[in-house]
């Protein structure tokens, strides 16, 4: 999603002002000459000044570029799905992995993202499950990454090698 430099600069400027202003609330518990707020104040000020300069630059060529260029995912529902499914499944992972375990969660994620890109659903499910199983074996069983086992928890002792 491309927006006008005026907006880009404005966002950076406001963010910088926020950082700088918020840094004034950090009080050092001991009498330090430079407290915890010093560095954020510096970078916040820097960020807001750079933002201001981008706004200034944007003002000079405000007529040549449009305010907002809609991204390609606004063109169709399918495109939007393919785009938003990516952050969507990450949030799904966070919400459900402890309950469902890695194997099921990863199978669901892989299957749905593959299917969303237009592949046949059965094939997506098969590929999704196989990849999830290989990942589960490789990372949880062999490399001991603490992935949740979900329903398999009670027998996970035998599944960690």
């Amino acid at each position: 999603m491309k927006v006008h430099d005026l907006i880009v600069g404005m966002v950076f400027m406001l963010l910088g002002i926020f950082v700088a202003a918020y840094s004034r609330t950090f009080a050092a518990p001991r009498n330090l000459s430079y407290g915890p707020g010093f560095f954020p104040l510096l970078v916040g000020t820097g960020l807001s000044l750079v933002g201001l300069a981008i706004v200034w630059q944007g003002l000079r060529n405000h007529k040549t570029s449009p305010i907002v260029v809609p991204p390609d995912w606004t063109k169709s529902a399918r495109f939007a799905l393919r785009f938003w499914i990516i952050p969507g499944v990450i949030v799904f992972y966070i919400a459900f992995v402890d309950l469902l375990g890695f194997l099921i969660t990863a199978t669901l994620i892989l299957t749905s993202v593959i299917a969303a890109s237009g592949a046949p659903k059965t094939k997506a499910l098969i590929v999704g499950f196989l990849v999830a199983a290989v990942m589960n074996i490789g990372f949880a069983s062999i490399l001991h990454v603490p992935l949740p086992w979900g329903p398999l928890t009670s027998i996970s002792g035998w599944l960690i090698w």
């Binding site: 309950l99 469902l100 375990g101 099921i104 199978t107 669901l108 979900g150 329903p151 928890t153 009670s154 027998i155 996970s156 002792g157």
Partner: peptide, 24 residues
């Protein structure tokens, strides 16, 4: 799949805890 998974979870949780630590 989700329903099956949920059922499995319920089963796993419902299994009464035994006295021996650790069993997993």
């Amino acid at each position: 799949l989700l329903t099956t998974a949920a059922a499995c979870v319920v089963l796993a949780v419902a299994t009464p805890a035994r006295a021996e630590w650790p069993e997993r």
